[in-house]
Design a protein around this nucleic acid. Structure first.
Length: 637
DNA sequence: CTCCCTTGCGCC
DNA sequence: AAAGGGCGCAAGGGAG
């Protein structure tokens, strides 16, 4: 089934705004007519020949007719970063047609063919996957075709020139997509993984327009609370010549801590400077009992979270002007396949706060203000947030990939891997520990926490030193390195196949020159295995786990897409192993049940040729704000 | 002033 | 010899 030219049509829009040029990158502005599609172009095959057409200032009816034509004729719409193009008709009231149409993205196919880890490269130095980067590589004689295009000049001359350019984009997109499709198809699983991933394109497109409604009062309240917190810590330090300027600067803070106050240097940065990070501050409190260090840590935390989350949210709501923030999802944005979200467009003075750093938004770890953050994000009126979360995702995929019998058994119903590991560490009875935990026993709770720490930390090759820091700072466990070394030993002894998996992956990936997931997604690992051995090995180990998690998420979205249409629900956002939906209030129970059934029974075999030895289940939570989701109670229904 | 690097830290 | 992985964002500091 090579690429069928008669079943694909490439599509590209140019967009502009009469209010502000920057709005032409913000599809939701079309909701209020503050930005518009200035033209669109298509390329398709007719009687074996390519035909390109363009339409200036398309009306909503014209866009509707185009989408309807594609649906009626079973044409797949092909674009370059096409979620952006698909978002505009969503904003113009055509979301239903966008969701029903088929979409494919040449840029994403290219990525599937060529992605590498790109260790240590800053964002600007990474390979660009833009069409403007692809054309010179594959059609060198056509390089520079995009020069001198003015996107906002609506004069007849500029428009005519732009329409030609618009069509060229669709020609290149068609040719490249066909090429990449056929290359991927040489290994059908790779193409299949890419095609499943592409199913989420219209969901992501619609989510750009939907946005996340914000409880501004809550954001202001959080801002105040963090203000109070930082002021309080600053007061506590008032007699020690401390200023915000010093505390905000790692360099100045290092001088204060280690020269002025004479505290011991516990850790250095990669560049050899004395580190002032929160681990160091945490340890200065615990080892030297210096309470000033604790105040410094709390101050820095409050200030950092205030600007990043509270102030950032208020800024974004203000910029968007309609009560919503709109972090932009990026499909396959990490080399393992995961999505990322960005909250800014432009840089420097031109930086626009379109959204919030949703993948970093503080969650509830039990600290005082933790639960105030996610409460800022609301369901729109008439909707409820429904979250499906892949239960123990990385643990389960490691169990499957390693084939470790104990891990696999712990994934069966009624088992609790963290209690198991806790019981191994403190040498008590596993079932008894589960019982005590159910009864709310405090000691048992801590023992389970230790097991959880071990299960989540030692899956990869973390050393005892870093693991100790993690246990102390992140899990607030009062432990020392020799003890954590013994915990690590218990872990590796309990799941012996994990280390075998590491060795097998390293051997296999070096030989093949790539790593791959169960679904067929790959990353290229050709490189200097002598010099960069550790990094390449780590990718060989990590990629199949994190990557298949991404594949699983895309498969879940692909299955949910047609279902959500039938109940009027929408994709809201995602958090790697969690999918957040907006569900009409009166459909929540139905979606909690039917959605869970669909996700617990994803067609892994049909999609990937994979029959799971264990159940891969999803947990469900529902609520009116992101911060107040509650486990859905299946028992009482 | 802008650009880039470093440090630090939030999430999975 | 020793080394978890994957990201995006904020702020300071230095170079140009």
């Amino acid at each position: 089934m090579t690429f069928d030219r008669t079943k694909h049509i490439s599509f590209d829009e140019e967009t502009s705004s009469t209010v502000d040029p920057e709005y032409s990158l913000q599809p939701f502005r079309a909701l209020k007519g503050e930005a518009f599609v200035s033209s669109y172009a298509v390329t398709y095959f007719k009687d074996g020949k390519p035909v390109s057409e363009a339409c200036a200032m398309p009306s909503v009816d014209q866009l509707r007719a185009f989408l309807q034509h594609c649906i009626d004729n079973d044409l797949t719409i092909v674009g370059w970063n096409v979620a952006f193009d698909a978002a505009w008709p969503c904003a113009l009231g055509l979301e239903d047609l966008v969701m029903r149409a088929k979409w494919l993205d040449g840029m994403l196919l290219w990525k599937h063919l060529t992605v590498t880890p790109e260790y240590g490269l800053s964002k600007g130095k990474r390979k660009s996957y833009s069409l403007k980067a692809a054309v010179p590589e594959f059609f060198p004689e056509r390089a520079g075709y995009e020069e001198d295009i003015d996107f906002h000049d609506m004069s007849p001359e500029a428009t005519a020139k732009r329409l030609v350019y618009n069509q060229k984009d669709t020609i290149f997109t068609f040719k490249l997509t066909e090429k990449f499709y056929n290359m991927l198809e040489q290994e059908p699983a790779r193409l299949q993984a890419a095609l499943i991933e592409a199913k989420c394109i219209p969901m992501v497109a619609a989510s750009y327009v939907q946005g996340l409604p914000i409880d501004v009062k809550q954001a202001e309240k959080l801002y105040e609370m963090l203000d109070n917190e930082s002021m309080m810590q600053l007061d506590a330090l008032s007699e020690f010549n401390v200023t915000p300027e010093i505390l905000n600067s790692p360099k100045q803070l290092a001088k204060l801590l280690f020269e002025d106050w004479g505290l011991p240097v516990l850790k250095k940065t990669p560049k050899g400077q004395p580190s002032t990070d929160k681990e160091v501050l945490h340890e200065l409190l615990n080892t030297v009992q210096d309470v000033r260090a604790d105040a410094v840590r709390r101050y820095r935390e409050a200030v950092g979270n205030q600007s990043k989350f509270a102030e950032g949210t208020l800024d974004s709501v203000k910029y968007n002007g309609d009560g919503c923030v709109r972090p932009m999802a990026s499909i396959y944005s990490t080399y393992t396949g995961r999505m990322t979200f960005t909250s800014k467009q432009g840089k420097g003075k031109n930086e626009r706060a379109i959204g919030i750093p949703i993948h970093q938004m503080k969650g509830d770890k039990g600290e005082k203000l933790d639960k105030e953050y996610r409460k800022m994000v609301l369901a729109p009126p008439g909707y409820t947030i429904v979250e499906f979360d892949a239960a123990g995702q990385e643990f389960r995929w490691m169990a499957i990939m390693s084939g470790d019998q104990t891990m696999l058994e712990l994934c069966m119903p009624g088992e609790d891997p963290h209690s198991f590991m806790g019981s191994r560490i403190v040498q008590c009875d596993y079932r008894e520990l589960i019982e005590l935990n159910h009864a709310g026993n405090k000691k048992a709770k801590n023992e389970r926490k230790l097991g959880k720490f071990a299960n989540l930390s030692f899956q990869y090759r973390i050393g005892a030193e870093k693991a100790t820091v993690k246990a102390r700072v992140e899990y607030k466990l009062d432990v020392r390195q020799p003890y954590i070394q013994s915990v690590k030993d218990v872990y590796l002894k309990s799941y012996p196949r994990v280390q075998d998996y590491w060795q097998n992956q390293i051997f296999k990936c070096e030989r093949k020159g790539y790593a791959e997931t169960l679904a067929g997604r790959r990353v290229d690992l050709h490189g200097d295995w002598r010099r960069n051995g550790w990094s390449l090995e780590s990718t060989a180990i990590n990629f199949p786990i994190q990557g298949v998690g991404a594949d699983q998420k895309y498969l879940a979205l692909a299955v949910l897409r047609p279902y959500l249409l039938t109940v009027g629900a929408k994709f809201f956002f995602e958090l790697h192993d969690g999918i957040y939906l907006l569900v009409p209030d009166d459909k929540v129970e139905q979606v909690a049940v039917e959605g869970k059934w669909l996700l617990d029974n994803l067609p892994y075999h049909k999609a990937w040729g994979f029959a799971s030895p264990i159940p891969l289940t999803w947990d469900c939570k529902v609520g009116k704000t992101w911060g107040t989701l509650k486990e859905y109670d299946y028992g009482s229904k």
